[in-house]
């Protein structure tokens, strides 16, 4: 069974499920895995943080979304200390139009994901981020591996 995570959305599951998400450009996917319980989740967020107070969907934002995913994993019985994180996406497309590359949304999204995971004390075990190309991924819950696919670079397992 395959679950699809849309933009500004998340999903959790248990082995032997597969969770997938498509079309990560500047967006970032945070993948959490609990190797003991063989369960995990994927968040596909769009922006680092809120620009105004009330918006309807907190999963658009890395700052809120990563924490919501962690809470969801805890609700499923995972201990925070057992969680391992992987980060995918955050590319900079049409780079010639970006004045300050370090402040491109993709870069900011990746930094925000790292920052929140660090604050929450979750170890980042792998990353496939940056570059100028889009990515899609399949997350296999029976062993935690993430297959990252891109038109520009083909497939890569992290």
């Amino acid at each position: 069974m395959k679950k699809i995570v849309r933009i500004a959305d998340m999903a959790v599951g248990k082995a032997p499920e597969v969770i997938s998400t498509y079309g990560l450009g500047s967006c970032v996917a945070v993948i959490l895995y609990d190797p003991d319980k063989k369960q995990g989740g994927v968040l596909h967020f769009v922006l680092p943080e809120r620009m105004r107070k009330n918006t309807e969907n907190p999963l658009r934002y890395g700052e809120d979304g990563v924490r919501i995913l962690i809470r969801e994993m805890e609700r499923m019985g995972s201990r925070k200390g057992n969680l391992r994180a992987k980060i995918v996406g955050g590319s900079t497309m049409f780079a010639s139009f970006i004045k300050n590359p370090e402040e491109a949304i993709g870069k900011r999204n990746v930094r925000k994901a790292r920052e929140i995971l660090e604050k929450e004390g979750i170890r980042i075990v792998a990353e496939d981020t940056g570059g100028d190309y889009g990515r899609s991924l399949d997350f296999y819950l029976n062993d935690g591996r993430v297959v990252v696919k891109s038109y520009a670079r083909g497939e890569k397992v992290i």
Partner: peptide, 26 residues
């Protein structure tokens, strides 16, 4: 302006265009 070209998944491209390059990001 001079155009910028990329070849990629449709969803990555359109999402990025809005998120990266427009003021109204939502």
């Amino acid at each position: 302006s001079v155009p910028s070209l990329t070849v990629d998944e449709l969803t990555s491209i359109i999402t990025t265009v809005y998120v990266e390059f427009t003021e109204e990001k939502e």
